[in-house]
């Protein structure tokens, strides 16, 4: 299982980078989102995956009685998911604004600083 998940992560990374290398602004954002998902899954996988053992202490006891999934990567990923939402929306708006100002969505036409354009 881990093998396929690792391959999936590889595919996500590859497609994320590939989309970032296109010239379109929208593809850039899609690439960033794909990369974000890839990173989350990578952290998740490296924290070791287990089934049916959520890191929640059973109601009637004070400590874990049986095996549990590592809660630390989960806490990391949870914040990462929310932060990436902020990042994505900012990127989307930035692209919108840039598109409006430069009237181009070709990244290659955005390689000069404002002063020169």
């Amino acid at each position: 299982m881990e093998l396929i998940l690792a391959l999936l992560i590889g595919v996500l990374y590859a497609s994320g980078i590939y989309m970032m290398l296109r010239r379109s602004l929208v593809k850039l954002i899609v690439g960033i989102i794909l990369l974000g998902n890839a990173v989350n899954l990578l952290i998740f996988l490296l924290g070791r995956i287990t089934k049916g053992e959520p890191p929640i202490i059973p109601g009637d006891s004070d400590v874990f009685l049986q095996a549990y999934t590592d809660p630390l990567p989960q806490a990391l990923i949870l914040t990462a998911i929310v932060i990436s939402f902020g990042l994505q929306s900012f990127a989307i708006v930035l692209v919108k604004r840039a598109h409006k100002m430069v009237k181009a969505d070709d990244l290659d036409e955005m390689n000069t600083t404002d002063a020169e354009s």
């Binding site: 959520p54 929640i56 109601g59 949870l78 914040t79 929310v82």
Partner: peptide
């Protein structure tokens, strides 16, 4: 604090 959930999910 006891079961899945919390401020992030609740807020969303």
């Amino acid at each position: 604090h006891y079961l899945p959930g919390g401020g992030f999910v609740g807020g969303l």
